[in-house]
Design a protein around this nucleic acid. Structure first.
Lengths: 241, 241
DNA sequence: CCAATAGTGTCTTTGAGACACTATACG
DNA sequence: CGTATAGTGTCTCAAAGACACTATTGG
């Protein structure tokens, strides 16, 4: 029997939040934006992914964009839903179900956002693999020290890497981590950093061009002490040459 | 600044529910379990996916298993999270965010569950493709008449088919739609029904056996008027022969 | 031995990896 | 013209599709 309106609140319900992994690749290193926690005495973990409570009149995407704007000043970021996390004890302060999102942005924009507020930091994101409960990641600061993550955010970060690795094969998601014009070598570095493996140069180029995901602009890099690479841009979907 | 416990309820929040697409393949037709709606006057759509409100002490998987048990009597069904749907107007009775799940079960168990209660029905699930807002599906009854779906459930059903098609390539998810022992022809029919295309027999068999996903039992079908097929079972993960 | 489907051998096609080669800019 | 990287031609290899062939059961 479907619930009627007043039924929705007959039982006490979990609170609903979003958590956002803002990810970038800076000089061949995978980065994620984290926020310094202030009540680390009550909640284990010095750092957390930015997040916020979903308001009654917002879609989840609205909440994500509001939180990103409030905490980083960023607008028009690429955002996709990852997965919803609902372990009963995931937040020791109360019952919160969190819908995790990942956001992707080029290195320059990412660094500018991380510098904007004092409690934000760009952490190195290391994928540790999967165990019985799923993927997991570890964060390190620029000196290589481990940054402890609160809640289930190490799981969320691990799941982001796992998802992005899967999507590289069949989508152009790596383009979200580059400016509008880029070289194929840059894009290959993006893929290699996310996958953690080296890729074959001719095969990589063939695949992208055959599938019509990128298009040469005719322009070239400048200021290099050797042969400059051609700049490419993303092809409009539907284009096949 | 992270919220403190009392902050969680400072604003009014959406209610949190799960919706479940219990899917099966019966005689080469893709089926989904739907429930007859009683207040179709107030909410457009005669049918809906089974669903329920998430209780404070439940994980989402707990809610899914509770709802499946209450509505169908099924236990130990294969269940995976699909996606969370949060359009503000998705339920005209009030603000509800819904985490959609799909559940897979073999034809016999599915048919028994669908017969168990009078308000349940096994609908034919037709994938219509993707538009700008995502995948969409249409339901038909056994006479071919369209069954109108409430809320965004046509989107959820479409997203389930889309997800399952993607997973067939790299996972053994089709095995969840078959009994413990099955013929390779049965499994190929499962794949073909989900994908909506014919598959190459030798290639299909090679792939499954090379990847060690299934294992021959040495037993064969009985009661066929022609050469009986060998029965296979799922290989334990890690086995490679 | 016929019907009908199970199961396989093998040729072709396709796409990815390997690797070496040519191309081109700056200084 | 040397250095360093861009970009490509081509061989190899692996996986998937095509297709025809053999195998096996009940009747």
């Amino acid at each position: 029997m479907p619930a009627t309106p007043h039924d929705f609140r007959r039982h006490e319900q979990p609170a609903l939040a979003v958590d956002i992994a803002l990810v970038s690749i800076v000089e061949g290193a995978l980065k994620v934006l984290v926020q310094k926690r202030t009540d680390a005495a009550r909640v284990k973990g010095d750092w957390a992914l930015p997040g916020g409570i979903v308001r009654i009149d917002e879609t989840l995407e609205d909440t994500v964009r509001r939180v990103l704007a409030e905490k980083t000043g960023l607008k028009d970021v690429f955002v996709e839903q990852l997965q919803t996390f609902s372990q009963v004890d995931r937040d020791p302060r109360g019952r919160v179900v969190s819908v995790a999102y990942y956001a992707l942005t080029p290195a320059e924009i990412f660094l500018a956002a991380a510098r904007r507020k004092g409690d934000l930091a760009a952490a190195d994101l290391h994928y540790l693999g999967e165990d019985a409960r799923g993927p997991i990641a570890q964060l390190r600061d620029r000196t290589g020290h481990i940054m402890s993550l609160a809640f289930d955010h190490a799981r969320i970060a691990g799941t982001v890497v796992h998802r992005l690795r899967g999507k590289l094969d069949y989508s152009a998601v790596g383009l979200e981590l580059l400016p509008p014009r880029f070289t194929l070598r840059d894009l290959q570095t993006i893929h290699e950093t996310l996958l953690g493996t080296a890729l074959n140069k001719p095969a990589f180029r063939r695949k992208l061009l055959d599938r019509g995901l990128v298009r040469p602009t005719g322009k070239h890099e400048t200021g290099k002490a050797f042969r400059p690479a051609e700049l490419y841009e993303r092809a409009n979907p539907g284009d096949r040459k």
